[in-house]
Design a protein around this nucleic acid. Structure first.
Lengths: 207, 207
DNA sequence: TCATGTGAAGACATTCACAGCA
DNA sequence: TGCTGTGAATGTCTTCACATGA
């Protein structure tokens, strides 16, 4: 499906641009210039034009880009599908927050199940999501078609969870554990280390 | 305080390396080679040596780097201080999770207060942190010495929160709202957009 | 022998600046 | 006039590869 090899940063920017287009469309804006997107996104205008070049949509110098058409083009380009499913592992503070946060938004992606090792957290429904014991993860994943896994467990367990995941159809992981995961080559890992980010913010709080 | 202008990515890597050194020290490891750090962090060995060059610590080819000394050098270089304070705005799912998550870890950075607009969420203690109404944010910040702010409010309110923050001593923001923040030049903004990250993970889940 | 420290090369990402067009 | 689309230039980051030293 992935047409060419696109830089990760480009993918990120296109997602951001796409969201801006969605919101502009909701506001009934029909056309938009690159510098307007720039203002809203914090990206630079030439950068945006370059990214849009890549997706192969042409605007007009007179009116700018057709919001609706451009949105659809990016949609297709990124292969967005409706109702994509993901799975969450780890129902601590962070995990439960993610369930509420993501499943509350109007997003294409929903968690369709979650796992934890703690018996008190499982066999119930949290934010509309069925929660099971981690022992069931392998079998439930392999009998599903889910291939996105979000890991929100303590770092000691993260690698083990990742192995179970990649053994059962998962090919993309969003990892919140501050732990480098070893995975097969074809599996994508997106690390999101909150502690590092907070420490980074702290670094820039010194003058 | 910031000695030279260090690339943001370098800062991130140094934080990661630092954490690895802390954990190695806890395991009583005295010396470590760059390729060992590489294995643990997912970074490349030359990259690590380059970063360490920058902090100005020299290892020995025979034994590698002295874990304890290197840790302290990075500590000093990054200006880590004990018990740095931050403030949280937004006590929804995500905000409450961050309180539990960060204040539970053994970190140098703690939240010392939190704010929300919803009366039901304030004037109480959550995960050991005093929660106040957003109206009190300005006065409480200005009478404190906190200069790190974590924003976990809906995107509609994020810019307003940011303005209150920067008007009251905040110079570094960790922003979870999917919204570009306009701030004065001297203020650092670290964006952490969970929805974009999940969508990015979804992108890489297609073959 | 094997790892460090680092100049030089290479890869990658961003911006410049302008032709072309409505 | 003021935008888009884009070749070329610039800037930044990463890796290579090897001299050096224990």
């Amino acid at each position: 499906m992935t047409p060419k090899k696109i830089a990760e940063k480009t993918v990120e920017r296109l997602i951001v641009i796409h969201r801006i287009l969605v919101s502009q469309k909701a506001n009934n804006i029909k056309f938009i210039y690159s510098h307007e997107i720039a203002k809203l996104s914090g990206l630079s205008a030439p950068q945006i034009r370059r990214d849009l070049m890549l997706v192969g949509y042409s605007g007009s110098p007179a009116k700018g880009y057709d919001v609706s058409k451009l949105k659809n083009t990016i949609n297709t380009f990124l292969g967005f599908k409706k109702n994509k499913e993901a799975v969450l592992v780890g129902l601590g503070y962070l995990g439960r927050a993610l369930l509420g946060y993501f499943n509350g938004q109007d997003s294409n992606i929903k968690f369709s199940m979650a796992f934890d090792i703690n018996p008190e957290r499982v066999n119930r429904i949290i934010s509309g999501v069925n929660c099971y014991h981690i022992d069931e993860m392998g079998s439930r994943l392999s009998s599903s078609n889910i291939n996105i896994c979000v890991i929100a467990v303590p770092k000691q367990s993260a690698q083990e969870v990742a192995w179970t995941a990649v053994d059962n159809k998962i090919i993309s992981i969003l990892n919140f554990a501050p732990q480098h995961l070893r995975v097969p080559e074809n599996v994508h890992v997106e690390n999101l280390d909150l502690m590092t980010m907070l420490e980074k913010a702290a670094y820039y709080s010194m003058e």
